[in-house]
Design a protein around this nucleic acid. Structure first.
Lengths: 245, 245
DNA sequence: CGAGGAATTGAGTCCTCTCAACCAGCGTGG
DNA sequence: CCACGCTGGTTGAGAGGACTCAATTCCTCG
């Protein structure tokens, strides 16, 4: 089992790129906890708003969506979680979920019991720090998305999102030089970017006609990365900063 | 000095409401670090994007704004920091700031040297956990704001923001039953909520005409809290959940 | 009393939305 | 093997919330 989790841990390490010294104890400690896996089918809820947290998940493969439902019927997707991301990490800190998490594809995740997980954080501050770093980076992504919704138009939002995902997936070895697989519907893009489905559709069309990118059959192809980054005002700084303090 | 910091620590504790057992060691350890204060004048930059972090601040009084500047000239304010909030907390995790922090009022903050601060987190996991909790709550606020920018109209965004601030300030003893002081310009509200200055102005006018709230002379008065919450779809859940895991 | 920042108000524009069809792909069942 | 139904994508038309430009008023302070 500690072999099966190898790739996931490697990805996690690649993501957090922390001080080399940490890596060994990190992998060992986590592997020891990752004895069980959970499987979710496409569309399954991992947790619903208001439910008590039961465990923490570490995604091995698949995509999950975090979102909120508004009284007025709207949905705001706040996050995509993919391989090496944690789900319900807040279980370590809160009692109840304040958002929904849904499996967007078949999803396989290691399950970490909360108490022992807390114990590890307690015993090994290096690990806690590394995970704090990963969390902080997610928050940086959130803040950048806020800037998108607040101050960028539809074309820029879409371009920015794709630039960001490309970078992020590339780091995990899940992208290639042309683009990446994106198992989302236009509807979900809309609910991520604060746009309507119809407008996302039209805007994707425009971006495609301008030779910037195309999104068909769950695959994003970037035709002109420089152009996209210029249009979006994309600056990878918020994804790239090295840990240190 | 450890007496002067008393109120700030108390507020911090009130904010994080953590297990009683933590409080003593928490206050003592932090007080010991809070030997120096920094003063900023209205408008001063605490840190600029790209700059290396130098220290962590714990606000004693005043308001600070965290924001991003977009290439296209826009500004997105991501956060207001007030008494008992940390500034540049990321200094513990990153080398360079990915956003700006500006003092919006006269600002007084304790300065915490990074290394010793990290040492404390290292030595006292309870404290690290408590701060992680505070951080997670900030992230929840960010996510909720994302939902606002994505899926709420101008009236709802404003109402929601005010409901949230009222709650948050109340917890610190900085609000009263009528409302609270809000040292922001309409321009800054606009850059927080992804609206234009002009539209914020008109929308505030409407809310006022509807007898819901008024905002004049840096003070928000809530005339009809229930109505506001209904309009905004405000649900304090994301601010209220107790720690635990 | 003048100057500068902030708040207001008016007018016209446009980006994005909603409503509404219609089309395409695909898995299922008769 | 093909019709049916579902989900997701595409396109058209009209409406409206929010934007920009611009001018005016209100405060506050030196």
């Amino acid at each position: 089992m500690s072999e099966a989790i190898g790739l996931t841990i490697q990805r996690l390490l690649r993501k957090i790129r922390f001080l080399g010294a940490v890596e060994d104890s990190f992998g060992q400690a986590l592997s020891a906890l990752c004895t069980d896996r959970a499987h979710f089918a496409r569309g399954d809820l991992v947790i619903a708003r208001g439910e008590p947290y039961r465990r923490i998940y570490l995604i091995e493969q698949g995509w999950a969506l975090r979102y909120k439902l508004l009284g007025s019927g709207g949905r705001q997707i706040t996050n995509y979680a993919i391989a090496s991301d944690f789900l319900c990490f807040n279980a370590a800190l809160f009692r109840h979920a304040d958002h929904f998490v849904m499996a967007r594809t078949e999803l396989v995740a290691f399950t970490l019991p909360i108490r022992p997980f807390l114990q590890i954080l307690n015993d090994k501050p290096e690990i806690a720090l590394a995970l704090a770093w990963a969390n902080a980076q997610e928050e940086a992504v959130l803040a950048e998305r806020l800037a998108s919704l607040g101050r960028r138009n539809a074309k820029q939002r879409l371009s920015h999102l794709f630039c960001e995902l490309w970078q992020r997936l590339d780091r995990l070895g899940l992208a290639d030089s042309e683009g990446f697989e994106l198992p989302l519907s236009q509807d979900e893009l809309a609910d991520t970017l604060g746009l309507s489905l119809v407008h996302v559709n039209r805007t994707l069309g425009e971006l495609s006609r301008q030779g910037l990118l195309s999104f068909r059959h769950q695959r994003v192809t970037l035709h002109d990365v420089a152009g996209l980054e210029r249009l979006a005002g994309f600056d990878a700084g918020y994804l790239r900063d090295q840990p240190g303090g």
